[in-house]
Structures are given as structure tokens and as C-alpha cells.
Design a protein around this nucleic acid. Structure first.
Ligand SMILES: NC(=O)c1ccc[n+]([C@@H]2O[C@H](COP(=O)([O-])OP(=O)(O)OC[C@H]3O[C@@H](n4cnc5c(N)ncnc54)[C@H](O)[C@@H]3O)[C@@H](O)[C@H]2O)c1
Ligand SMILES: NC(=O)c1ccc[n+]([C@@H]2O[C@H](COP(=O)([O-])OP(=O)(O)OC[C@H]3O[C@@H](n4cnc5c(N)ncnc54)[C@H](O)[C@@H]3O)[C@@H](O)[C@H]2O)c1
Lengths: 238, 238
DNA sequence: CGCGATTTGTGCGTGCGTTCACAAACGCAT
DNA sequence: ATGCGTTTGTGAACGCACGCACAAATCGCG
């Protein structure tokens, strides 16, 4: 009981933070870490926006949504802003991740340092193939998928990463959800059905490539098929 | 209505196709391939929308933007729609990809079959480390980054994938652009500056994880701190 | 202490994207 | 041929997001 109202710097709750803003906060955080590394104590919205690759007005509005602490005429305190954003994103609490599907991609993910550098730790690896079980990667050992529920409960894992073939992804997702996982990052190219309350994010390489392909196609079509309609045109160049 | 001449398989140009639509077309394409595999000749917007995980009205509007050929009362011809979308995305033309940074992630990408299954082929691998140069992965050999311009020109490569550490990414991007690459997929967690006319898409694992973290955080905060304000509450279940 | 330079926070207009809802179009049975 | 059920294509309303532009706030300095 006693929901202490945490007037000071406790976990703030932002139920109505725009999703577009949430998606940009990690970018700001990365840019801020870079600035801190370079010794900056404060940064203007313009400077931070440039480092994050966004419009400065958008950045200011984003930060204003979380009641940010900037100082007019000066800018934002880098260290304070890092703390604030990390609190909003819930990065103060270390979150454990289960990685399922230790194949081509799974091996790369398992050895990736980008998890730990933020507030995440890969706590367990799972696969279905006997040949993979028991393999040691870093400090972890690949376990059989049947142990998932047990390990998730024991380790307090809340996030699952799916790196299995697409045909196995839905079943794995079901198992993750059944084990108590409430967030899933899916690398398999397929849609996942999960109960409400479970968040799924998808990373699909093929989709990204095809979007690039479209723009390549468009560039090729708009650049070439503009033949000299008016051959009498004057200065066509510079 | 007013479908202009049905120049059967000519390349349609859609300069003003909404970006949100473009981003969903690959999903539709994947869903359509799955339906075709299952033997479906036609599919309703409702069925395809379900398979792609979107709203059916949104799907119909998306398809209408590319003057699609559906039949009222029946649905869409699966094979025809595949052809149409592939034409719009420019997938009829095979596109060659250069992969730079053959480390942890680069190895996984180099061996990934998802490229070839769509219209892409990894045509060259590059790294800067002597220890990597010369390694054979599949049918390709890792080459030194200094050969990039030469190989890109010789092979007709138009897309570059960056899988180097973040500190090297901007330099690699500059080299890619200098070599004539006009589309870049960036896995390094940093912003890239490129000239206009070059498209960059970014895949950032850490960002995805942090977005999931936010929702975990929010779920934890909104679930717990709702103490029995009204102890006389009735059915709270389901 | 006051003033100017600087930068934040935000009100507001605009455009994009999503969704509803329905008329038009189509196949099929009779 | 006609009517009926089905499904597409789209007009219209709505909401979100973006970015401009400016008032308010703060600092430094004379
Ligand atoms: N390799 C890449 O670069 C890459 C890139 C983007 C997306 N993907 C996607 O990621 C997924 C994995 O790709 P990959 O190249 O690592 O494939 P992979 O075949 O090398 O690895 C898949 C692994 O999943 C395991 N697996 C299969 N069914 C399982 C189950 N029910 N439970 C647990 N584990 C199971 C397999 O034993 C295997 O080890 C695929 O869906 C692929 O489309 C891969
Ligand atoms: N490993 C993952 O699962 C993963 C996931 C998401 C994102 N990433 C990101 O992808 C990138 C690569 O990750 P990784 O784990 O493969 O790192 P890695 O260190 O294993 O591989 C990086 C490779 O890039 C090469 N390289 C360095 N500078 C280069 C240059 N100037 N030109 C050409 N090659 C160069 C290195 O020699 C090395 O082989 C990183 O930015 C990382 O943050 C990795």
C-alpha cells in the first residue's frame, strides 16, 4: 500500500505520451550519451536535434511532453536529461531478455554488446534443435525451448526476442506469452497474434530493402523518362 | 474507375504514393505469397488484411492508390496483385547489394536467404580488417573496403548495407555514396549525413528494445498503482 | 539594476494517415 | 433478364503529427 506520490525524482508515469515521441526518445538518448562523452554539460535544442537528426521544434515539443527541464537562454542539462529520459523509458530497471532461435541471426544477437550497454541483459538462449542445445555463447548456454516457461519465471524475464524461421514464430510467441513474457521483438517475417496487453515490435529486413527498392525505382523512372519535350529549351544546365 | 490503358506489364510510376502505403506494400506482398502457396487464387480485402495484420479499409485504400485491379463481389486476383505490387516496388529489376562490415552481424546478413528470395542479391562483401579480408562466405569473398568504388561500378551495385561499428558508419556511408550507391540500409546506431537523392533507412535494435521497455514500464505503473478507490466496486473481472 | 542576446515552451495552422460508411459494381442463382 | 448477396473503391470525418513563429524566461554584462 502507500502509493507514495513520489513528488521528487521517482518514476514518472506518462500514459498519454505520443507514440511518435516515444519512438524518438531512444534517439535523443543516444545523442545525449554521445554529447556527454564529448564533455558537453549543456546542449541547445538545436544542437541536440542535429545530433539526433530531427527538427529542433519537434525535439522541444517531445521534451516538453515529459515536462522536461530546460533552461531558457541556456539549453538542456545533458546529464539531467539523460536521467529523465531513462526514467520515462523505464531503463532504470534492468530488463532481462530471452532470445529464441540461436541460428544465423541469433548468434549475432547473442554476442551483441548493444544490449548490455543499455539497460538490457540477455538472460537466456533457447533453441529447438538438439544440435544447438548446450552450446556455450559468452557466459550463457543454449537451452531447449521446453525449459522456457521455467527459466522465464525463475529469471524474471519480461522480454522475448524471436529469431526463428517464420513458420515457428507464432508457436514460439505463444510459448513466450504463456511463460509470462509481455513484450516481444520479432525478427521473423510474419505477423504475430498475441493477446492484448502484450506488445510486439517487428524488425523486417526484407521490408526495409523493398522500401529502398521502391525509391530506387522511382528515382530511375523520374530521372530518365523526362525526354526533351521542348527541344527549343534554352539553358537547360546550371 | 477511369483506369487508364492497362498497359499490362509496363512499369507504372507513382511519384505521389503515400509513404505509409509504400511501407505496407512489402507486408501485403509477403501475405500474398503465403496465400498463393496455400493455393488461393483470389482473396478478399478482409482476408488479405488479416494475413497482413492491418485494417481492411486501409488495405483497400492502399491498393486503390496504385490503381489496383480488384473485382467487386469477388476480391483480388492473388497472382495479378503480386505482379502489380512487385512492379510498383521495382522488384522486377534485380538489385545488387554491397554489404560493408563483415563482423558479428555482417556474417549473419551475408548468409541470409531472405535477400535472394526477394529480388535482391548480395553481390560483394567488404571489411577494413586484414583478418577478415579473403574469407569466403558462400560464393563470395570478403574484399577490402578500398576496392569498394571499383566493385560497385563493375557490378552495378545500387544499395549498400552498413554493418560496421557506429564510429565508422559515416565514413563508410561517404564511401558508398562516392562510389555511386543511392540507397543505404544502416544497422549502426548513428545518424548518417548523405546528399539529397540518397535514401537512408535505419534499423536500430536498441531503439526497438527501448520502445518495448517504455511500454513495459507503463504497463507496470498503470497496473499496480490503482488502489481500491471504490471498495464497493462490482465485477472487475474480464 | 536594466538591457539585449539567447533559447525554451507552445499555440496554431496545415497536411497526412486512418477509419467509417456507403454507393457502385460484380457474380450467381433463378 | 432480374434480383440478391457480396465486395470493392472512395468520399468524408476525424485525429495525430509536424513545423512555423512568437511570447516568456533566463543569463551575462555593463
Ligand atoms: N540471418 C539474417 O541476417 C536475418 C536477417 C533478418 C531476418 N532474419 C530472420 O530471422 C529468422 C532467423 O534467421 P536465421 O538466418 O538465423 O535462421 P536460422 O535457420 O539460421 O536459425 C533459426 C534457428 O531457430 C531454431 N528454431 C526453429 N524452430 C524453433 C522453435 N520452434 N523453437 C526454438 N527454436 C527454433 C532453429 O533450430 C535455428 O537454430 C528468420 O525468420 C529470418 O527470416 C534473419
Ligand atoms: N551484432 C548484432 O546483433 C547487432 C544488432 C544490431 C545492430 N548492430 C550494429 O551493427 C554494427 C555491427 O555490429 P557487429 O556486432 O557485427 O560488430 P563487429 O565489431 O562484430 O563487426 C564490425 C565489422 O566492421 C568492420 N569495420 C570496421 N570499420 C570498418 C570500415 N571503416 N570499413 C569497413 N569495415 C569496417 C570491422 O572490421 C568488423 O568486422 C554495429 O554498429 C552494431 O551496433 C549489431
Amino acid at each position: 500500500m502507500s502509493q507514495q506520490r513520489t513528488d521528487s525524482s521517482a518514476s514518472p508515469v506518462f500514459p498519454d505520451l505520443p507514440e511518435a515521441t516515444v519512438a524518438r526518445l531512444p534517439e535523443y538518448l543516444r545523442a545525449l550519451h554521445g554529447l556527454a562523452q564529448e564533455g558537453h554539460d549543456t546542449v541547445s535544442s538545436e544542437g541536440l536535434a542535429t545530433a539526433a537528426g530531427v527538427n529542433s521544434a519537434k525535439l522541444r515539443k517531445d521534451l516538453s511532453h515529459l515536462g522536461s527541464y530546460g533552461t531558457r537562454g541556456v539549453g538542456y542539462d545533458v546529464a539531467l536529461l539523460i536521467t529523465q529520459i531513462e526514467a520515462v523509458l523505464g531503463l532504470t530497471k534492468h530488463r532481462k531478455v530471452a532470445l529464441v532461435g540461436i541460428g544465423n541471426l541469433g548468434h549475432a544477437l547473442a554476442g551483441y554488446g548493444g544490449f548490455a550497454s543499455r539497460g538490457f541483459s540477455v538472460a537466456a538462449l533457447f533453441d529447438a534443435e538438439r544440435s544447438q542445445i548446450g552450446e556455450r555463447i559468452g557466459t550463457l548456454v543454449v537451452r531447449h525451448i521446453d525449459e522456457l516457461a521455467e527459466v522465464v519465471a525463475a529469471e524474471g524475464i519480461s522480454i522475448g526476442v524471436i529469431a526463428t524461421p517464420a513458420r515457428a514464430a507464432q508457436q514460439v510467441a505463444d510459448q513466450l506469452v504463456g511463460a509470462g513474457v509481455t513484450s516481444i521483438l520479432n525478427f521473423a517475417p510474419c505477423v504475430l497474434n498475441v493477446p492484448s496487453g502484450v506488445d510486439v515490435r517487428k524488425v523486417d529486413l526484407a521490408v526495409e530493402m523493398q522500401i529502398l527498392s521502391f525509391h530506387e525505382h522511382r528515382k530511375a523512372l523520374t530521372a530518365l523518362p523526362v525526354p526533351p519535350e521542348q527541344p527549343a529549351g534554352e539553358a537547360t544546365g546550371s
